[in-house]
Amino acid sequence: MNVVLWIIFLPIILFVIGTFMLGYSRKFIARIERRYGPPIQQVFYDIFKLMNKKTNISHGWMHDIAILMLLGGTLLTMYFVPVPGFHFFAQYGDMLVIMYILLIPALGMALGVGETANPNGSIGISRALMMLAGYDIPFVLTFIGFAMINHTTSMYDLMLAQQAGGIAGWGLISQPLLGIAALIALQGMLGEKPFEVMVAPHEIATGPMTEMGGKYLGIMMIQHAIGIVVELTIYINLFLGGAVNWFEYIVKLFVLFTMLLSVNAVFGRFRTDDAVRFMWKIPLPLAIIGILFIIF
C-alpha cells in the first residue's frame, strides 16, 4: 500500500520540488544580475501556459512519440533512484541500469528533434551527444571506483555504506578526487554553463527546442524539472551520503544546486570541442588518479 502511494505521489512531489528549484534558479540568477527576477512559482505559470496553448504543431509520429519517451524515460529513472523513504525499485535495477536509463530521454528527444527536420535542432542534438561523451566517461568512472570499494553496484547499498560512516563516510570526503570529478561532470550533465552548448539560444536557436512549442515544450519543461532533481539526487546518493529524511534531502538538493548555479551565473559558454576537451582533461584524469588510489 505504502509503495503504491509512493508510486503515485513521488512524481508529483519531485515535480513540485523541481519547478521550485527552477524558479529559484531564475530568481538567483536575476539577483546576481541585480534584477528583481520573476516570482519563484514562475515555472508553474510557464508550464501551464504551454499546456494551455491552442495550436500544437508536430512534424510527424516520431515527434509525438519522442515526447512520450522523453518524460516516460525520466519517470523511469526517477523510480529507480532511491529517495528518503522510498527505494522499492532499487532492488530491481542497480546503478548501471540507472546510468543507461538516464540516456533514454536523451535518445527520445534526439529522435523527435531529428524528425522536426530543423538543422538547428540536429546541431543541438549533435552537440548534446558530444557533451554526453564528454561528461559521462568521468562520471561513470567515479561510480566504478565507488562500486569497487564497496563491492556492490546497487545505488541503495552505496548510500547505506556511506551513511554507516557518518559524515566522514561521505563519498566527497572519503574519496575527494572522485567527488570533485563527478561534481564537474554533473555540471555538464545538467547542461549548466559553461557546458550549455546544446541549447545555445543565440547560436542555434535553442537547439533541440527549436521546433517545440505548446504542449511539447510544456512536457519538456516538466521533464526538465523532474530530471534536474533526479540527476542531483544521483550525486547526493553517491557522494553526499544520501539522505535519511526529506528535510535533509531538500537541504542537500538546494545547497548542491546553488553551488552549481553560482558557477553557471558567472561563466560564458565553452565551444563544444573545448567543453569535451575540458571534460577529458580535468575530471577524467582526476577520476583516474582517484581509482589508482583505490587500487593501490
Binding site: M51, N52, K53, T55, N56, S58, H59, D64, L68, Y216
Partner: peptide
C-alpha cells in the same frame, strides 16, 4: 499529460 493539451496538428 499529452492528451490534456489541445489536439496536435501535423
Amino acid at each position: 499529460i499529452y492528451l490534456l493539451g489541445s489536439r496536435r496538428k501535423h
